[in-house]
Design a protein around this nucleic acid. Sequence first.
DNA 1: TAGCACTGCTTCAGATTCGAAGCAACTCCC
DNA 2: GGGAGTTGCTTCGAATCTGAAGCAGTGCTA
Lengths: 174, 174
Amino acid sequence: MDVMTDSQPKLEPAQLGAYFALMEVAGLLRHGVEAQLRDAGDLSYVQFQLLARLGLDSPTGSHRMTDLADGVVYSRSGLTYQASLLEQAGLVERGPAPDDERSVMVTITDAGRERLAQVLPGHVEVLREMFLKPLSGADVTALAALLRPVRDHMRSSPPRSAKPRPRKGTASSR
Amino acid sequence: MDVMTDSQPKLEPAQLGAYFALMEVAGLLRHGVEAQLRDAGDLSYVQFQLLARLGLDSPTGSHRMTDLADGVVYSRSGLTYQASLLEQAGLVERGPAPDDERSVMVTITDAGRERLAQVLPGHVEVLREMFLKPLSGADVTALAALLRPVRDHMRSSPPRSAKPRPRKGTASSR
DNA sequence: TAGCACTGCTTCAGATTCGAAGCAACTCCC
DNA sequence: GGGAGTTGCTTCGAATCTGAAGCAGTGCTA
């Protein structure tokens, strides 16, 4: 529009509106879902996401830790923590990966599937009530179509779970 | 299979897609923004949101605690915590409200405005880079238009910050 | 005006989160 | 095959978030 389109510090109202609405919707939705999950099955949102990813997404019911972390956004250490909790609760099992000794395969157990089935209907209900209610079928499709490219873009540009690790040898040599 | 359309526990793929994409985009975006804010001005996301709300949204630069909490989604106690931190840092001031002795008015200070101005350009930059880049102008408008009604719906249905407080008198007696 | 329920905020203990550091397995290149 | 660098996960300490409980001011009613 004007001289420089590159770094002007202001955003269009629509851009700001989209940003704030997005963050607020996600926050409120997460809050609502979290409460339901706690009531229905004593699961945190993260734990539910992990179970869902294992139980619904994966044919084998297994995933590597890193793959799970990438999907759920959380830090590696946070994932380790939650995976431990799930394992203690008997909802998942952790074992070595067949082809890479470093990796840990997380597998959902029958109890895990059961728990998942137990909370899913209520989860969907909350989703419908809070999120989907004010949207038409076309709206939902449009929304998904708009967000998907953004997600893909975000996934690729910053190495989400692999930060440039500081060189081991602190020496600046070479 | 689907005798009843009301409570069937399954969602359309588009619905699930919209849901997951929404949550993941919001999560990744928040992550990115958080890192930038920390680097540029040593602010957490919440602290930034509070400052932004005070400095940009409000003509007077003041808000009641509760109004802030509603906008930022977080729990009341979390807000108290963050407000304390901001006050310690000299970025806001807390004082009594003129007409209600219970309320606490939070006001942004000059230092707060300065800090806000300091991080804003970078913040916008991250937003553009992560969030707005894959979207056309029309896309952004459409996205905002789709999310706004959802946000309004969520804001109204559950009294977000006013939970039905358990009666003081535990006695169930009449 | 006294009594009583309600609202606004804070305090508190516990749970969850993160980044940095560390250990072990893998890969590449000579 | 040996060594260096890389990757996968865990441990650790510190910061943050949350819900429940508590204190104080307000408004309504008799």
